[in-house]
């Protein structure tokens, strides 16, 4: 796999393998995946259910430990880190947006956004905070609790949180999976803008071709292997490629 842009990768996986269970019930979720995530790029990971796309993201995001192979965030190799260091890494260098339940229900939107910085005891950069808030359009909702926000607003709060600590990479796991198309489009537009305007690196897992079309690059996974890659995708092209999975199955690169 070659880089399409110059510059070092924000994160990379080298021969990443993840096996669940043992013996007859053994499932190979990732089968020797090697991939670079280029800095300041919006990468989407796609694939049918069970293709290993979520596992790949979890391993990359230090939420899960691979069976073998290496994960690098910047130049840090994760397998060398203990839980304490992994926690700090997640806190300081990685941002998360999950499909659902992104917010602590007892905290206001503002408190949720600043949570990782508060946990770290780091000062919040006022200007940066204001920039993000105005970008996601939440200025008037900051004092609200999560249950007073719509699903789209909640996800935008989650995005704002992910960006506030200026992480090296943001992982988003089906961020629009629970949203209607309009709210989903708002969230995706925001992620797109943060890449373009702030140079943020984003990796997003999705099964929605429309969502993947917002990315700079789409990686296709099948049966735990990287099977294809698409630059400057459109929804139609992605959909076409996904249909190929249904027809041909897996294993065919190109």
């Amino acid at each position: 796999m070659t880089n399409h842009d110059s510059g070092p990768p924000a994160a990379k996986a080298v021969d990443l393998t993840k096996v669940y269970g043992a013996g007859d019930t053994q499932v190979v979720a990732l089968d020797g995946v090697t991939v670079d995530f280029i800095a300041s790029q919006f990468t989407a990971i796609m694939g049918p259910s069970g293709s290993g796309k979520s596992t790949l993201m979890h391993c990359m995001a230090a939420l899960d430990t691979p069976t073998s192979g290496q994960v690098f965030i910047g130049d840090v190799e994760l397998s060398a880190l203990n839980d304490k260091k992994l926690t700090r890494l997640r806190r300081d260098r990685i941002g998360f947006v999950f499909q659902a339940f992104n917010l602590v229900p007892t905290l206001t939107a503002r408190e949720n956004i600043t949570l990782p910085l508060d946990i770290a005891g780091t000062r919040v950069d006022r200007d940066w905070f204001e920039t993000i808030i105005s970008t996601v359009g939440l200025s008037d909702r900051l004092k609200h609790k999560p249950n007073e926000l719509s699903g789209g607003q909640q996800q935008r709060v989650a995005c704002a949180r992910a960006l506030l600590s200026k992480p090296e990479i943001v992982f988003a796991d089906e961020p629009t999976g629970n949203l209607d198309s309009r709210s989903g489009a708002e969230v995706l537009a925001f992620l797109r803008r943060s890449v373009r305007e702030f140079g943020q690196t984003i990796v997003m897992v999705t099964h929605d071709p429309g969502a993947a079309a917002h990315a700079d690059r789409v990686l296709f996974l099948g049966d735990g292997r990287l099977v294809d890659e698409m630059i400057d995708p459109t929804a139609e092209k992605v959909l076409e490629r996904m249909k190929g999975f249904d027809a041909v199955g897996t294993g065919q690169v190109g």
Binding site: D83, T87, R90, R91, F98, N102, V104, I119
Partner: peptide, 9 residues
């Protein structure tokens, strides 16, 4: 969630 966003044990 708290652990994921960096709350230590």
């Amino acid at each position: 969630l708290l652990r994921a966003v960096g709350l230590s044990r």
